[in-house]
């Protein structure tokens, strides 16, 4: 819209932020799935690791939800300078996350509820246009970072995580493995050196220009269409949230399951109620 390219350092920071976001959401979601089976210890453990990550966010970016750091043409704060805080913290979180997932996998009451519950067949997921975790747990290799890599995703190494079974356990395992991938990506970003530039100064937005933004959020792909007005102000915004794609999958996933498993299936998709019509 203003025909600028953001500098390399801003790209690295934006990638880092996306991965931090994915990390705290995935770990929080694994914890929330325990609420569906009534496993309070797991629920609180997940909340504990999530809160730790939120406090890290607050410390390095000044906001618990990583807001206010992106701006047109770059970023506002150089969080790569907080390397010394990030690396030991990530090591700690990685260990805690492993212990947490191991505990869940060894809890029979939890695993029995997860296995073979809320199965979503691959062909249904394909037909209804599933995205994100729901698609990957059913064996579809749906990932924006592989289809349209931007930021630093074409240079960092990461694996696409898919599971074949399509049940609640598969979705939990995809989350768990992707959290590991996130930590791996963050480490790779922190290893490299970047030029010091944080942003581009010339950021006039043209009149009547259009732009499309897309990222792979923790829930799935998210699209933003923006149109500018006469004086470069924002005239139209259209959001396509991942919940919009994934809500139609729910009836197929819960079909044939016992009633108490409904909240579990619901939580395994982690869909937003407000996002169902966007």
């Amino acid at each position: 819209m203003s025909e600028i390219m953001i500098p390399e350092r801003a790209k690295a920071i934006r990638t880092l932020l996306l991965e931090l976001e994915r990390l705290y959401n995935h770990i929080g979601d694994i914890g929330n799935m325990c609420a569906g089976t009534g496993l309070q210890v797991g629920n609180q453990w997940g909340a504990y690791i999530k809160e730790k990550l939120m406090r890290l966010n607050k410390r390095i970016t000044g906001h618990r939800y990583l807001r206010g750091i992106n701006k047109i043409g770059g970023v506002t704060k150089d969080i790569l300078a907080e390397k010394d805080v990030l690396i030991p913290f990530l090591n700690e979180v990685e260990k805690e996350k492993q212990a947490f997932v191991e505990f869940l996998l060894n809890t029979i009451s939890h695993m029995e509820r997860l296995e073979n519950t809320g199965k979503l067949a691959k062909d249904i997921a394909l037909k209804l246009g599933a995205t994100g975790i729901a698609a990957r747990a059913s064996g579809i290799d749906d990932d924006i970072w592989l289809a349209h890599p931007h930021l630093l995703y074409d240079t960092v190494k990461f694996n696409l995580i898919t599971e074949d079974k399509g049940d609640v356990l598969a979705r939990m395992m995809v989350r768990s493995k992707e959290a590991d991938e996130s930590i791996k990506i963050i480490r790779q970003i922190l290893e490299r050196d970047y030029p010091k530039e944080l942003d581009v100064t010339n950021t006039t937005i043209k009149a009547n220009a259009e732009g499309l933004g897309f990222v792979e959020s923790p829930r799935g792909s998210v699209f933003y269409y923006v149109k500018s007005g006469e004086n470069g102000s924002c005239e139209r915004v259209k959001v396509r949230s991942s919940s919009y794609c994934n809500w139609p999958l729910m009836p197929y996933a819960v079909h044939g399951n016992i009633v108490p498993d409904f909240p579990l299936c619901n939580k395994s998709f982690n869909l937003s109620y407000s996002g169902c019509d966007m």
Partner: peptide, 14 residues
């Protein structure tokens, strides 16, 4: 949903 998450965070072990 951010405000909701912060309300939920009030009930976490911290």
């Amino acid at each position: 949903n951010a405000c909701e998450w912060e309300c939920t965070a009030l009930t976490n072990p911290f």
